[in-house]
Amino acid sequence: MQVDDTDRRILRHLQADPAQSMAALARSANVTEATASRRLERLRQRGILKGQQAVIDWRKLGWEVEVSLRVSLDKTHPHAFDEFSAAAREVPEVIEIQSFLGRVDMRLQVIARDMAHYQEVYRSRILTLPHISDIEALMHIAEIKRGETLPI
């Protein structure tokens, strides 16, 4: 999948301001609107550009607690990963699920309105997830860097 300098330039400017109009994107990338539109469509069709999304600051909506849970699963059960993942997807407060190779099998990113809400979610929804053999909670205190753009 070849991506040339023009595609990279369009993607850089799109990352910098995803809400800009097609005219503004084309102007900043130094191409015509038709070229920008055609190239974006080709990048979407090739799966390079997956889409655009609204990034919502959930803290400003009253979600004050963020916890990263490192989970080790009982790997003696042949469907432990699939069953755990499916059940974790059903917990609305779980905003991210990642799987790993190593001592830790899964990581869940959990948000809550406050510590009382987190305790309720943890006890009633997290600890009831299937096949957990060990769990470690890491309380989020500050975001130092978030890589939302690629160095293209």
Score class of each variant (00 low, 15 high):
G62M: 14
T6K: 07
D134F: 09
Y118L: 11
H79E: 14
M106I: 05
K50W: 07
V71S: 06
D114N: 14
A16I: 11
D105Q: 10
E136F: 14
P151S: 08
F100W: 03
I152Q: 13
G147R: 07
D74K: 04
G51A: 06
I152M: 15
A19M: 12
I48C: 08
A26P: 03
V71I: 13
R113M: 10
E41R: 11
R107D: 07
V3K: 12
M139Y: 14
E90T: 06
E143G: 04
D105S: 05
S37W: 11
T128F: 09
H77Y: 08
T149L: 08
L150M: 14
Y118S: 03
Q15F: 11
E41I: 13
G62P: 15
S37H: 15
A87G: 06
A137G: 02
M22L: 13
S28W: 01
I56C: 07
E41D: 15
T149D: 09
S85Q: 15
Q2P: 03
A88G: 01
S28D: 12
Q2F: 08
Q2K: 08
A23C: 03
I56L: 13
Q20L: 04
K60Y: 03
I111G: 00
S68R: 12
R59F: 11
R42P: 13
I126Q: 01
I144N: 12
